[in-house]
Design a protein around this nucleic acid. Structure first.
Lengths: 205, 205
DNA sequence: CCGGTGCCTGCGGAAATCCACAATAGTCAC
DNA sequence: GTGACTATTGTGGATTTCCGCAGGCACCGG
């Protein structure tokens, strides 16, 4: 597990250093990358913190890196930095889920504030993602049959009906039911439906 | 109930007419307003469609109108139109929840597409808002006591425990329970918790 | 005063849930 | 083959839920 780190991707060494120094002066750990590709080889789903991304770079652009990260299911909040941005580009980036879009030259204090906000936002997200992951893990422990039964329990069906639908004895349904509760760490169908409520919701922020 | 309408707010008559004509040519009904104030007197929570908003206007600016509408709980998706926009302004608007931010001169086809997207988005939102409203209405029909009981049912407590906590007989709890199910139009505690799941979720889109 | 509503309670029974104990059978890996 | 896991079923009983029937008490508006 890599800690909370701000990843800086920029082809200009001076910019990288300035940003790293700025963040360090405010107590924010950071790591720098010379190109989109370099970061991409390192990127994974479970990074924590945020990403400061230059738009215009030789090779892969920041925008393209952004898209690729999304494809890799990397949900790190992204703050774009650019000296040659225009409104449509900023709008598109934000609509695609970027956290912010800042023009160079940037205001140091404001930028740090944005980074801090992004980090906090990511903390919330990753906490929620964690509990969802745990939930999926528990769900994965369920047998095929148990999942079939669970689905019908959540539909509010009586054990008798479920047994009928699956062509098995009511007693068997009861056994599955108790196994489900045990594996999902809940003690009633109500709790179960509440816990599973998290899954259906869209992961917006 | 006013139907799905695109509201155009711009101080320039030529722009208003051009936009209205453009939208009409693509089958989108619209209504025009000469100023932010004029629209504000008309605005209400239950408008349907979208809002095309000029940023720079004499008197109240589009941004300010936007803020006021949010304060009035008017959730109409807003597309900003401006000839003098900059990146920070666009970023701020989008982060505040604007649907889009378009520079003049605009591309006619692209703009109409954005309007259509906004209208569709609003349709989804208003449908969800409608069901939430209905839900709150049903909740409002519940007696004080019934709400207390419901809360404990959702906590997964047994009737016996609930009776104990409220200092009443178990039979009474049962009566409340059945009244709750009846008023909420559900037939089990599981359904109840699922229906109420909609309320807890943030209304993002 | 009377009717309506909300809140509370008891009785008794049908139906459903929960659970311990006990057992059969198929699959799969070691 | 043996052991682990899964699916299945049964018996029997304790507990809980659900519901109709019946009644009491308080408050409030006509």
């Amino acid at each position: 597990m890599s800690g909370v780190t701000t990843h800086i991707v920029d082809d200009d060494p001076a910019v990288r250093d300035a940003l790293q120094w700025l963040l360090q002066s405010r107590g924010v750990l950071s790591q720098t990358w010379k190109s989109a590709n370099e970061f991409l080889t390192f990127a994974s789903r479970d990074l924590c913190g945020c990403l400061l991304l230059d738009v215009r770079m030789p090779g892969m652009s920041g925008i393209e890196l952004f898209d690729r990260l999304r494809a890799l299911d990397c949900r790190l909040p992204v703050i774009f930095l650019t000296g040659h941005g225009d409104v449509p580009m900023a709008v598109q980036a934000l609509k695609d889920g970027a956290f912010d879009f800042v023009e160079k030259p940037y205001d140091a204090n404001a930028l740090v504030d944005k980074v801090l906000a992004a980090i906090e936002c990511d903390g919330i997200r990753s906490a929620r993602d964690g509990s969802i992951l745990l939930l999926r893990q528990k769900l994965g422990q369920l047998t095929q049959r148990e999942q079939e039964v669970m689905q019908r329990i959540l539909a509010g069906k009586l054990n008798k009906v479920i047994a009928d639908e699956l062509g098995i004895a009511m007693r068997t349904v009861e056994v599955h039911r108790s196994h489900i509760f045990e594996k999902m760490h809940v003690r009633s169908a109500v709790e179960l439906s509440q816990v599973l409520g998290l899954l259906g919701d869209k992961p917006e922020s």
